[in-house]
Amino acid sequence: MLEVTGLYGGYPGKIVLRDVYLTARAGEITALMGPNGCGKSTLLKTICGILPVKAGRVTLGNTDLTALPRRELSQRAAYLAQSRETPELTVERLVLHGRFPYLGYPRRYRREDLEAARRAMGEMGVLGLAATPLGQLSGGQRQNAYIAMVLAQDTDLVLLDEPTTYLDVSCQLQFLRLARRLADSGKHVLLAIHDLSHALKVADSAALMRDGALVLQGTPEEVFASGVLEDVFNVRVMRVETPGGWYYFAVELEA
């Protein structure tokens, strides 16, 4: 289980996270929701060591993540950023760099790294594009290549920052199925996500942030029922029953 306890963090000269408590269980999708600028990305980046911890604890099982060297931390936690470069690499090379945290001396990827990369590309359906430069892919394909990189990294904890933002609806749904598969394989999946419908539909646990603090964490049902969601976003959240379960959507508050 991932446990974030009393976490303070942010950028040099600026505290963003104030006393954050959060848990994420293995085998579950934990959705992180909150308005723009509430600190979702900062929280993910602080958990995986991109930003420094100013105070508090982050533990995964019995391991104190904040005490690990960067390389070892990257063997436990993978992070997929919201906005990404399009580096001049082929798909295969990008996915292979998912094995970078395991790279030893001599500085060459081993056979098992290549195999892990091939498996990940197969999983994401980009094996046929292995030799294609990223710049020649569609947005959805590039996203899949990046996720294959995260899979190749083979970590217990997977942090995904707004992974559905630039995807069309069918790619979004495909992505959410993948997040479920990742969780089913025993990983901790922590997902920062704007789309309330998707978040409440797919998550096992939903966490709500406002102004750098975590205001509520519970099952989607609980979060919906609490009314805090409506308060935080200043909207009205409604749900309808569909054959596939509850479907949540947000509408404007009546004047």
Binding site: G49, R70, R71, E72, A78, E85, F100, P101, Q153
Partner: peptide, 14 residues
């Protein structure tokens, strides 16, 4: 090559 993933991407890979 890892640096070409950008600052956050590169750090996330350790």
């Amino acid at each position: 090559e890892v640096l070409s993933l950008g600052e956050d991407g590169a750090r996330a890979l350790g």
